[in-house]
């Protein structure tokens, strides 16, 4: 199970494996488990940022990680993509590889874990010296060795889907923040990963540009992509998430459906946090 044997991205949709609408979005416990995170822990020096995190991600589901800054949600996400090396715990893909972080991971293992997913960064991290099209085809052509013509055709189809077909030959600096982030999403999609990871994809954007990016993400979710999203966008979580995971101080305080989480959170800390972001002036 890796990027290379996922479905082709050409054609009418974003190239996801599952059928749209095949899953009932309201039930977070339905669907096959894609991977299981157990006891994930990580320290930076004396600071323990992750204290035994458990997380189950099902195929085709959208998991939203929320929590105050410093809660460890971004570290969890980055660990899934091998951008951080946890000190302990396991990640097990159903019918696929598993990773035990209590043993030190060698380069090929880290690469194997990385290749399960693709990351969309908060600051998009597009390659400034490459055009939009080159940004998208860089991975397929130079890493996955997809034939150039095929990679370009697929990239063009994906760019067209996010409304950026006419921007294929411009450099990232010539795009708006929202357009840059949509290219960032397309760059991740072009790798045909099993899981899409989003690290606060809209936090660096002007408020009026957030909608375009969220709309693309919602479309991906509707098409059945498996997504793990770190975000503070409650509206998005409410409308799109299958499970919302609330983290604080390096632990998962609770994980439930969005309706449960936003209407009746179990934990006092969760309630406090949600209250603060939904009602920042405290009125």
């Amino acid at each position: 199970m890796s990027r290379n044997d996922a479905n082709s991205g050409a054609g009418g949709n974003f190239g996801s494996q599952s059928q749209p609408g095949a899953m009932k979005r309201s039930d977070m416990n339905q669907g096959d488990v894609l991977f299981d995170v157990k006891g994930l822990s990580k320290s930076f020096g004396d600071l323990q940022v992750l204290k035994s995190i458990d997380l189950t991600v099902r195929k085709g589901q959208v998991s939203v990680l929320m929590g105050p800054s410093g809660s460890g949600k971004t570290t969890v996400l980055r660990s899934l993509n091998s951008l951080e090396s946890p000190d302990g715990g396991t990640i097990t893909f159903t019918g696929g590889p598993s990773f035990d972080f209590s043993k030190s991971q060698k380069k090929p293992e880290r690469a194997l874990l990385r290749d399960q997913s693709a990351m969309v960064f908060q600051q998009h991290n597009l390659f400034p010296h490459r055009t939009v099209l080159e940004n998208v085809t860089e991975g397929p052509i130079h890493v996955q060795k997809t034939p150039k013509a095929q990679a370009i055709a697929e990239a063009e189809a994906l760019l067209a889907r996010v409304g950026l077909a006419d921007k294929r030959d411009v450099y990232p600096f010539q795009l708006s923040g929202g357009q840059q982030q949509r290219v960032g999403i397309v760059r991740a999609l072009a790798l045909k990963p099993d899981v899409l990871l989003f690290d606060e994809p809209t936090s660096a954007l002007d408020p009026e540009l957030v909608g375009d990016v969220l709309a693309v993400m919602k479309e991906l979710a509707d098409e059945g992509w498996t997504m793990v999203v770190v975000t503070h966008e409650v509206t998005f979580a409410r409308a799109v998430a299958d499970q919302v995971v609330f983290m604080d101080g390096g632990v998962v305080l609770e994980a439930s459906t969005p309706s449960q989480m936003f209407s009746n959170p179990r934990h006092r800390r969760t309630r406090q946090f949600l209250d603060r972001i939904l009602n920042p002036l405290g009125e």
Partner: peptide, 26 residues
Amino acid sequence: PRGQWEAGYTIGMSQTQQLGRVILPQ
């Protein structure tokens, strides 16, 4: 920026590719 190394890594590049295709041109 470090994010450029990470972007190269996340799309599957080896360290040599990150250096040669992402970092050195910049």
